[in-house]
Write a protein that binds this DNA or RNA. Structure first.
Length: 587
RNA sequence: GCGUCUGUAGCUCAGUGGAUAGAGCAGUGGCCUCCGGAGCCGCGUGCGGAGGUUCGAUUCCUCUCAGACGCACCA
């Protein structure tokens, strides 16, 4: 369905035409003077220049045309040429009625028929998730939901770091500890054990140990390198061991992502892209794009008009090995071949901007990606501590994600216990739900591209622009609706025209729901949803304060209010779902 | 050195070629016979700096200052 802004604009256009003004100028925006009006049109000022006429006179003529328009309760011209619009309560409530009946709050299906791949994982196998993975997961999960809401078919890909030297390190370290295992017996012909020779906690110890050793011990480093090569050449035993590492890591990762309410449709990794590399390189050669430079094979991607130097994209190192860009390009080959996506969106740390510039340019130049396929890089900023520097543990190390989450849950739990009497086990469960909301909202309410300051105390506060405040509001709405039902009131979905200021303010805000979500989708900006639902929460709390809903004796009024609450609940629930968290029943 | 991004209230963040630049926190003053007071209603201060384009610039352009980040064989 049309957005409310579109409805208003379409009502204005005939008035513009009637005055001999280009109807294209009838754009409408939310008023920035709520004391004067609800929506405003600045078209008369733009028209003044083109038609050599005083802007206020034009505005006056247009306003005169609007006299009998049912959309407006009031339309007036204001100096120097604003057209100030106040909507009629009947129009607003009718719009909301349509919205309530519509699918997805009447949201435009801009992505209908389109397929998008979202790449927002990037964890390494055999290594625990840490806060560096947090933003990709949170932002990516939200975008996935937003895209789906806009009608896209979306595939979320975790894109594991499961190839290269790290695997060689683990394999070599395992070999030195347990040389007797069949994986290391070149003559072994039988089936390898189904059980892995290590657990996830073993792996988490083996990898850093091996990594440290390789830096101190040249012989070990060389052996790890050999192991990597053997694995890449398809050695049977090493491949079997690799499968164990992968399986164990993926199981652990799934568990941890689940705690974050984050999921992926594809569990592909760098290893899956390897088989596409030879053909891809051949293609680059045949296209005449690949050439030797300082011993490496590269593709030039500098373009005219670059303000900075864009170094060539390295496809093969001097020693013939492939690297980051190679794998990412091969992954694109695979994605194009398997899915034919219309869009691929990477949610990755913004420091990798240059890398993706190189990869994207190479992909288009080489025809790996169709020209009409949109490749987008959403580079997100760093999560910093209160000191403004990248977030660390108190000891200065990298914080594991599960520890961060546990800390937040504990803090929320303490707050629940000090405020309310809730049974302890119940409070623990609730604290997990609220904690996740606090974490995600705290992150998502910032512009993704900017660095932000992580402050537990602020994020878990129940006051202000926080996740818990949104949840509190939603829980409050649910509680009233529940009580109404308990009182035997049949919940109505008949909205009524607003009878006063706070009711109208809430209605106007709810009428913008589909538009706000569409904005977030177009701008790849979940923080716009945060801002919107925060405004809805504030508007509801004001409305709540002004109206005694359950005590209202006029059933027509009460029904209208309950219907309004129902819609507010729907909008808030949709909002938090798009952000990737849930609300508890009580808090 | 070159480049990219960022700079908005004491702090954390929104926002816009247009009217009086918004929130929250912190500070402070009110509001509970009433559906959840974890709420509501008040009170103060600000677009890093200098030019330019424009009827109008915090927004666009140039320069400048400050900070973060990036500048081929790591991922």
């Amino acid at each position: 369905m049309k957005t409310i802004t579109e409805c208003i604009r379409e009502a204005l256009q005939p008035a513009f035409s009637a005055c001999g003004i280009d109807p294209e100028l009838a754009g409408v925006v939310l008023s920035n003077r709520p004391d004067l009006c609800e929506y405003q049109c600045n078209g008369a000022m733009a028209a003044a220049k083109r038609y050599h006429k005083a802007p206020l006179a034009i505005a006056g003529e247009i306003v005169a045309q609007l006299e009998n328009c049912p959309l407006f309760e009031k339309a007036e011209a204001a100096a120097p040429g604003f057209i100030n619009l106040t909507l009629s309560p009947d129009f607003v409530s009718a719009y909301l009625q349509d919205m309530q009946a519509a699918q997805k709050l009447g949201m435009k299906q801009a992505g209908a028929g389109k397929k998008a791949i979202l790449d927002y994982g990037g964890p390494n196998v055999a290594k625990p998730l840490h806060v560096g993975h947090l933003r990709a997961a949170i932002i990516g999960e939200s975008l996935k939901r937003i895209y789906r809401f806009a009608g896209y078919e979306v595939l979320g890909d975790v894109h594991l770091g499961d190839w290269g030297l790290q695997m060689g390190l683990i394999i070599e370290e395992t070999r030195q500890r347990h040389p007797e295992l069949p994986y290391f017996d070149p003559g072994f012909q039988g089936d390898y054990p189904a059980e892995a020779p290590f657990t996830i906690s073993d792996l988490e110890e083996i990898y850093p140990t091996a990594s440290r050793k390789s830096k101190e011990d040249e012989a070990f480093a060389a052996a790890a390198h050999d192991a990597t090569v053997r694995l890449q050449q398809g050695d049977r035993g090493y491949t079997a061991l690799f499968r164990h590492i992968l399986r164990i890591s993926v199981n652990d990762l799934k568990k941890n992502y689940e705690k974050l309410n984050v999921s992926f449709d594809l569990w592909k990794g760098e290893s899956d892209a390897q088989k596409y590399i030879p053909d891809m390189i051949r293609g680059l050669k045949e296209a005449g794009l690949l050439h030797e430079s300082q011993g490496a094979m590269v593709v030039d991607v500098a373009e005219e008009g670059d303000t900075k130097e864009v170094p060539p994209c390295i496809i093969q190192k001097s020693d013939g090995a492939s690297l980051y860009a190679t794998t990412d390009l091969a992954t694109l080959v695979q994605r194009e071949q398997d899915y034919h996506p219309d869009e691929i969106l990477y949610v990755v740390d913004k420091r990798q901007d240059m890398h993706f510039t190189q990869v994207f340019r190479t992909a288009y130049k080489a025809g790996i990606i169709r020209p009409e396929t949109k490749l987008t890089f959403l580079g997100f900023g760093t999560m910093n501590g209160k000191d403004g520097k990248p977030f660390k543990t108190r000891e200065g190390g990298v914080m594991r994600l599960e520890h961060l989450i546990a800390d937040i849950d504990e803090a929320v739990f303490a707050r629940i216990m000090e405020n309310r009497t809730m049974e302890e086990t119940e409070a623990r469960k609730t604290a997990e739900i609220i904690g996740l909301a606090a974490l995600k909202y705290g992150d998502l309410s910032n512009q993704a591209t900017k660095n932000y300051v992580f402050d537990v105390d602020r994020f878990i506060s129940f006051e202000g622009n926080t996740g818990p405040y949104i949840l509190y509001t939603l829980v409050r709405i649910k509680s009233i609706l529940r009580k109404a039902e308990e009182n035997g009131t049949k919940l109505s979905d008949r909205l009524r025209p607003a009878g006063d200021a706070s009711e109208k303010a809430l209605q106007l805000l709810l009428a913008r729901a589909n538009e706000a979500i569409a904005d977030a989708c177009e701008g790849i900006a979940p923080h716009r949803i945060c801002q919107y639902i925060y405004e809805v929460s504030n508007a509801f709390n004001s409305f709540y304060h002004d109206h005694r809903i359950l005590a209202e004796e006029d059933p027509e009024k009460q029904n209208g209010w309950l219907a309004l609450l129902g819609l507010a609940r729907k909008v808030l629930e949709t909002g938090i779902d798009l952000l990737g968290f849930d609300a508890p029943d009580q808090m």
